[in-house]
């Protein structure tokens, strides 16, 4: 690991001012960043520790929830308001990593964690455009069982590894940012970028910009929601495919529906086409399958991950059937 300056920010203003003057990275729990620094994939000149900035979970005036960026993942998952009003978020967080890592990881750090593509990690032996722009991508012709089926490019087919972000995408969360130019809010769905010609640019964050909070709007579909994760072992593994979904029913019909997928793209994948098929419909397994078929029609698989297309469809159908009470 290369030498760096460690600075602990006492408040947000101090964090922003340190990050403005140095080639710095913000440090949350360190569960991903410290590992990447040890591998010499990340080598910041300074770490600005923002993990002790005030982190609260509070009701918003509109009946939603505001979650501070420094709140630990395990605290979010166990919070009574999250469990009762946004169960898919609790379940998604609890599906990720291990208890120790959830205790360390912050909300902001979880959002900004980097791909676990093995070729990205293998600095000594593999080509990766994300790690070294222009070097090429060994995953496209390589072992790509874990890689993307949506939104990939000829330069990168990596996936975003977060479970939490899949639920945030389905919930339509808003990310609060602070930077040198002031504060701004962006939808979580717009925060991460697809790889395109520049897989090394992963978000729309500006230099020195800090995630300060996540805001969740009130939602009836969110109260009837869940998260299903399919992986190579039953715990402590990244997703092959995961689905966060919420279902709001009125008079026997689907009034509101939210579906997002994990393990399938460089960002959490909102299944807007599937939602479109379902709105206003009577919830049946056949209709759920039609919605899943519609969404996955746009999927593009590689040699090692063709199974993900059918797996994603079945996981969507299973998750929605559970929420609708129509499990076979």
């Amino acid at each position: 690991m290369r030498a760096f300056d460690y600075r602990r920010a006492g408040d947000r203003a101090e964090a922003l001012s340190i990050a403005r003057t140095e080639t710095a990275r913000y440090l949350g729990g360190g569960t991903n960043l410290v590992d990447l620094m040890r591998q010499n994939i990340e080598a910041p000149a300074a770490l600005v520790d923002v993990s002790r900035l005030p982190g609260l979970i509070e009701d918003t005036p509109t009946g939603g929830l505001m979650i501070g960026a420094a709140v630990r993942n395990s605290v979010v998952a166990a919070h009574p308001a999250v469990r009762a009003r946004y169960p898919m978020l609790s379940r998604a967080i609890l599906a990720g990593a291990s208890a120790q890592i959830r205790n360390m990881a912050t909300v902001g750090g979880n959002i900004l964690q980097r791909t676990r593509c093995a070729y990205f990690y293998d600095a000594a032996g593999s080509h990766c455009n994300k790690r070294e722009p222009g070097a090429g991508c060994d995953a496209i012709e390589g072992f790509n069982r874990y890689h993307a089926i949506f939104g990939a490019s000829e330069h990168c087919i990596a996936t975003h590894p977060s479970d939490m972000c899949v639920a945030l995408a389905a919930l339509g969360a808003t990310v609060h940012l602070a930077g040198a130019g002031g504060e701004r809010n962006v939808p979580l769905l717009d925060l991460h970028r697809l790889p395109g010609d520049h897989p090394e640019i992963e978000t729309i964050l500006r230099p020195g910009e800090l995630i300060t909070a996540i805001e969740l709007a009130p939602s009836e579909a969110a109260a009837n929601s869940g998260y299903r994760k399919v992986r190579d072992r039953s715990s402590y593994a990244f997703a092959l495919v995961s689905v966060a979904a919420g279902l709001g029913l009125a008079a026997g019909k689907i009034e509101d529906v939210r579906i997002a997928m994990g393990g399938v793209a460089a960002k959490p994948w909102r299944a807007a086409r599937a939602e479109q098929v379902l709105r206003g419909q009577v919830p049946t397994r056949e209709r759920f399958r039609e919605a899943a078929d519609t969404e996955l029609a746009a999927a593009k698989a590689f040699d090692g991950n063709e199974f993900k297309v059918e797996l994603a469809k079945r996981t969507i159908v299973a998750m929605l059937s559970e929420l609708a009470g129509t499990e076979a």
């Binding site: 460690y6 602990r8 440090l27 729990g29 360190g30 569960t31 410290v34 590992d35 770490l47 520790d49 993990s51 395990s74 208890a99 120790q100 890592i101 205790n103 360390m104």
Partner: peptide, 12 residues
Amino acid sequence: TRVLSCLTLAVQ
């Protein structure tokens, strides 16, 4: 709270 000491910088 249980955490991983390998990924915790001592200064943290």
